[in-house]
Structures are given as C-alpha cells and as structure tokens.
Computed example of a mutant assay.
Amino acid sequence: MPTSQSRDGLVALAVAAVVVVTVLIGTFAPASHGRSGPVSPATDASCAEWSDGCTVCRRDGEGIACSMPGIACVPKAELCQRHSGG
C-alpha cells in the first residue's frame, strides 16, 4: 500500500502533466481566424441603416445615430435595411 507521501507525489505529478498537456495543446492547436457567425449591421461598414424592430440606426459621415425604442418593444435580430450607395 502506497504511503501518503508517495500518493501526494503521484497526484502532484498528474496535475503537472495535465497542465503541461493543456499548454502544449493551446500552443500548437490551429487558431481559428475570422468570424464564425454573421456580421452585425452595426459593425458592417457597408450597412447604412439597420433596425431590430424597436430602434432604427443610421450611419453617416458624422457617426452612428439611433432612434429611441418604443415603451413595450421587444427587440429582434438586427437586420440591415439599406446599404451604402443604394
């Protein structure tokens, strides 16, 4: 039967091995670049006007301006209503 000191050493070695393997996986695993989902109209520079059904936002030369939502409005997904130049 292993002694308490021997068991503690095995546990410490197992924890160290898990840490080393985790660091190696994080270092050598391929990184995912780019977006994994759709681009939000607020971050899409080609979208000049978008809405979530409650507020309407417009992008112009001075920046972004949004309307105030209605009192009982339930927002939905943001959709681009008008693209720049069209």
Rank of each mutant, 00 (worst) to 15 (best):
residue 56 V to F: 00
residue 64 I to W: 03
residue 46 S to F: 06
residue 9 G to N: 11
residue 40 S to R: 07
residue 73 C to I: 00
residue 27 T to F: 11
residue 19 V to C: 14
residue 48 A to L: 12
residue 85 G to K: 02
residue 58 R to H: 05
residue 54 C to L: 02
residue 45 A to K: 12
residue 6 S to A: 13
residue 81 Q to E: 14
residue 68 M to A: 03
residue 62 E to P: 00
residue 57 C to A: 07
residue 52 D to C: 08
residue 75 P to S: 15
residue 29 A to R: 08
residue 28 F to Y: 07
residue 35 R to W: 06
residue 23 V to S: 09
residue 52 D to M: 04
residue 20 V to C: 08
residue 4 S to H: 03
residue 59 R to T: 15
residue 52 D to F: 07
residue 71 I to K: 05
residue 16 A to Q: 02
residue 41 P to F: 10
residue 59 R to K: 15
residue 8 D to I: 08
residue 11 V to N: 02
residue 23 V to A: 12
residue 54 C to A: 06
residue 29 A to K: 07
residue 71 I to E: 12
residue 7 R to M: 13
residue 15 V to C: 15
residue 61 G to N: 15
residue 75 P to Q: 13
residue 60 D to H: 14
residue 50 W to G: 02
residue 45 A to E: 14
residue 76 K to C: 00
residue 33 H to W: 13
residue 55 T to F: 04
residue 66 C to I: 02
residue 18 V to N: 11
residue 80 C to H: 01
residue 64 I to A: 08
residue 17 A to T: 11
residue 83 H to C: 02
residue 4 S to Q: 06
residue 43 T to C: 14
residue 52 D to G: 03
residue 31 A to D: 09
residue 36 S to T: 08
residue 43 T to M: 13
residue 30 P to N: 05
residue 71 I to M: 07
residue 15 V to I: 15
residue 34 G to S: 03
residue 66 C to V: 03
residue 29 A to S: 10
residue 22 T to Y: 09
residue 58 R to V: 05
residue 27 T to L: 13
residue 30 P to R: 04
residue 76 K to D: 05
residue 80 C to F: 00
residue 77 A to R: 09
residue 66 C to Y: 04
residue 9 G to K: 08
residue 58 R to F: 04
residue 42 A to P: 05
residue 72 A to C: 03
residue 74 V to P: 04
residue 85 G to S: 05
residue 29 A to D: 06
residue 78 E to T: 03
residue 82 R to H: 06
residue 14 A to G: 08
residue 63 G to A: 03
residue 58 R to K: 10
residue 54 C to Y: 00
residue 16 A to F: 07
residue 33 H to P: 04
residue 61 G to C: 10
residue 4 S to C: 02
residue 86 G to A: 10
residue 46 S to G: 14
residue 55 T to Y: 04
residue 73 C to F: 00
residue 24 L to H: 07
residue 12 A to C: 10
residue 8 D to T: 09
residue 86 G to F: 07
residue 44 D to P: 01
residue 63 G to I: 02
residue 82 R to S: 10
residue 1 M to W: 14
residue 11 V to K: 01
residue 39 V to P: 08
residue 80 C to P: 06
residue 16 A to C: 11
residue 21 V to K: 00
residue 27 T to M: 10
residue 61 G to A: 15
residue 3 T to N: 13
residue 60 D to M: 11
residue 35 R to P: 15
residue 67 S to T: 03
residue 18 V to H: 11
residue 49 E to I: 10
residue 62 E to R: 09
residue 50 W to E: 03
residue 84 S to N: 15
residue 1 M to P: 15
residue 25 I to N: 11
residue 34 G to V: 00
residue 22 T to N: 13
residue 76 K to G: 07
residue 19 V to R: 01
residue 8 D to H: 05
residue 45 A to M: 12
residue 27 T to Y: 06
residue 53 G to R: 05
residue 78 E to N: 12
residue 1 M to L: 11
residue 46 S to C: 12
